[in-house]
Simulated scan of single mutants.
Amino acid sequence: MNEKKLQFETISVRGASGGDSVTGAISYPIYQSTTFKHPELNKSTGYDYSRTNNPTREEVERTICLLEEGKEALAFSTGVAAITACFHLFKPGDHIIVSEDLYGGTFRLFNDIYSVFGIKSTFVDTTSLDGIKEDITNETKAIFIETPSNPLMRVSDISDISYLCKKNKLTLIVDNTFLTPYFQKPLLLGADIVIHSGTKFLGGHNDVLSGFLIANDKDIISKLRVVQNSTGATLSAFDSWLLLRGLKTLSIRLDKSQENAILIANYLKRNENIEKVYYVGLEDHEGYDVNIIQSTGYGSMISFKVKKVSLVAKLLKKLEVISFAESLGGVETLITYPYTQTHVDMPNDLKQRLGVDERLLRLSVGIENINDLLDDLKSVLGE
């Protein structure tokens, strides 16, 4: 059977191989081995040492690759490990344009780590093509975007930015963590590299750390493979198996959590205690029109701003069904306070300018019963 003819949901359930071809195991085996026997001198089974290649990791890489419709995928121990590997493609003096509204850990990498090695970065509102053009220099080598962004859900036009990148011979890198390949496929829109924190929606159960890079260009893939093997932050066999298990329910989880998110976003929008709601699925959201063109869904991430700072502590203490915790993308609904959690390393002046202030909260909506989630919010915010 030609795997490429299968639909997304079927691929995510079956995996790239459809099970183990040797034993017939439906659940792909965990090859918990660091090393592999060679038949004889100068001959290999294709597996030598697990840092270089492991059958279970290879299976999850091939599966993610099919779902993103790329040529190859590489699995890493965390999302930031994947980003770090990606930026080994650049050298001192290179300049990268980055979405100004993005995950605080990514900001920290650019601002505190890459800068030490001479890689320069400029944080730009990538929803504005003119704004991007103004910051392109002779040293610019890449544009890195999150869309929707974290935490303000800004939507950047992948196709337009891709056209700009090709015109200027730049690499376009897209973090697709929030929407996953189920809702958005940046490679088909012109991106060169797609990044995922697989810890989030791909794993889906808050029990595994992982990261992925997916690309189409053979030269980029070859370089990334060398980086992956040389730096060693590869995904373990057991964690690869957890990802394969999580992927089986990806479409079902995302459909349900999005259904919940739409209802919660509309509740928050009506609530007198809420000043503003940031959700891509609301028609008055600034990026709504772009998002419906380049994706097939809105996802389940919501940020909202309360009118009174005092409500923040009250919400985080009194919510019972919704958990106050970092991270996102799991089956459980989580609420996060970006100002002191995910975006704590951003300078206060930048946070204030972006609107990541003391009144902003972020929800990762899970798959619980919607009435329980709404009742939980209403117990603090009222009707």
Rank of each mutant, 00 (worst) to 15 (best):
R62D: 09
L152T: 01
F76A: 03
G70S: 11
Q352W: 12
I11L: 02
E3A: 07
V321A: 02
Y31A: 14
M153I: 08
L67Q: 04
I214D: 09
T340F: 11
G287E: 05
N138W: 11
K37F: 00
T56V: 07
T45L: 02
L377N: 10
R108G: 11
G366N: 02
E368I: 00
K276L: 10
N291Q: 14
T78Q: 04
T84C: 13
M301P: 00
R245L: 05
E139F: 04
Y31F: 08
A16S: 13
L172R: 07
D376E: 01
F304R: 02
I113M: 12
I26R: 05
L41K: 15
T35Q: 08
W241C: 14
G131M: 15
Q341H: 02
F90D: 11
R108P: 10
A261W: 10
T63I: 00
T296P: 14
V194K: 15
I158P: 03
A265T: 03
G297E: 05
V380L: 07
Y339H: 03
N2W: 08
L361R: 04
S295M: 03
F178L: 11
Q32K: 14
E9S: 12
V208I: 14
A191S: 05
S222R: 05
G24Y: 02
H88V: 12
S295A: 04
L152P: 01
I145K: 09
A313R: 15
V194N: 14
V356Y: 01
T336H: 06
T171C: 05
S77K: 04
E358I: 15
D255C: 12
L350D: 15
Y49N: 13
N371G: 05
I292G: 02
L328R: 14
L102R: 14
R362K: 13
L243A: 05
L350T: 13
E272L: 06
S77A: 14
K218V: 11
L102Q: 15
S210G: 01
G203H: 03
E134Y: 15
P151S: 10
M301V: 00
K317R: 10
D357I: 08
V22F: 15
E68H: 12
L187I: 13
